[in-house]
Each structure stands twice: as C-alpha cells, then as structure tokens.
C-alpha cells in the first residue's frame, strides 16, 4: 500500500507492505535510523518518535496508522542538518566521531536536551538516547518546570541499561531550566 508521512517536515512516500511498522518506515523508507529497535514489544522506548507532536512507540504503530500524519524523529531535533555517516565499514565505533562543524551542527544548534545530555553524561552506549530525548521533549512541552519525581515518572516507559538514569534525570532538569529561560 502507499503511505505518505511527513517526517521532520519533509514528506516521505513509499509503496510498502501493509505490515510495515512506523519504525520500519522511518528507518527503511525514510532512511533515518535514529529510532531504534530495542524490543519490538512496546516496552523499552528506544523507538519513540513524535506522531503529530505526541510521543508513540513506533514499533507498536503501523506505518498505515501514521499515513498522512506528521512524525518527528531525533534527526529533527537539532536545527542544523545532520548527515548520516555513509560508510560505516571503514570506521570503528569511536572513529565515527566527526566534529560538530563538519556536520553543519554547532553546539548552538543542538536542542537544549541534546546539549544537556552531552554535558551531564546522560548517554553511554546511546541506544536509548533518541527515545529518551523525544519522550522528554514532549514531556517538557507539557510540564515545563517538573520535579525530579515527575521526570522519573515521565520516563517510566523508557529503559536505559547503561546510565542508572540519574544523569538522564539531571540532564532533563537542566534542559528544562534552560528552556524556561
């Protein structure tokens, strides 16, 4: 079937199998691999994206359900353009670091949440990060001045196995403070 979804402001259309999940559409059709498969059972939150501004687990939504709607992924968070790294086969993991400027992103163009995550060490392997960022973005839009307990509650559908969560919670509070101005 034909599905068209506006992703990060750009319409993406594809002729896809009905079974295609929104996660698969975003990754395989739109080529944006920031949303990740951590369980495919709606439990880990690695696949979280915003659908019409509301957070969803894209592994538990059909692309067909999102047809004609707007999706925001982690790639849409920073204001600068981010480019995917083309040739991973020649790079080791830590070698794929490219300076901010080379990606058309400087620190100023990162979203305050991204910036705070970076400063507070709120990511290690980074597999959960995209989902955390989008969940928090939607949450802070609703609750701009949360308590630590509220942040923890807001993240109850997102697992992280690396950080023990404290740095993520701290980063969320820091970003909230900056976003309130």
């Amino acid at each position: 079937m034909k599905v068209e979804i506006t992703i990060n402001g750009r319409p993406v259309a594809g002729e896809v199998d009905e079974r295609t999940l929104l996660l698969e559409f975003v990754r395989d059709v739109a080529g944006l691999t920031g949303a990740r498969n951590g369980c495919l059972e709606a439990r880990c939150g690695c696949c979280s994206v915003l659908l019409d501004g509301q957070v969803v687990k894209s592994c538990n939504v059909l692309a067909a359900q999102a047809d004609g709607r707007e999706v925001e992924t982690v790639e849409g968070l920073a204001t600068g353009d981010t480019t995917t790294i083309e040739d991973p086969t020649t790079e080791g993991s830590v070698g794929t670091y490219v300076p901010l400027s080379a990606r058309g992103v400087d620190e100023g163009s990162l979203h305050p949440l991204q910036q705070a995550f970076h400063e507070r060490g709120a990511l290690q392997c980074g597999y959960c990060t995209a989902g955390m960022l989008l969940t928090l973005k939607e949450f802070l839009a609703r609750v701009p001045d949360p308590t630590e307990a509220e942040v923890r509650e807001a993240l109850r559908g997102n697992l992280c196995r690396c950080t023990g969560y404290q740095s993520i919670v701290d980063a969320a509070l820091l970003a909230a403070e900056r976003m309130r101005g």
């Binding site: 939150g45 979280s48 957070v55 969803v56 687990k57 538990n60 939504v61 969940t135 559908g157």
Partner: peptide
C-alpha cells in the same frame, strides 16, 4: 495506565 507513549495510541 502504562506510559505516555502507549497512552497516545
């Protein structure tokens, strides 16, 4: 119920 992302749908 559940979490925010599930509640959206």
């Amino acid at each position: 119920i559940a979490d925010r992302a599930v509640r959206t749908m």
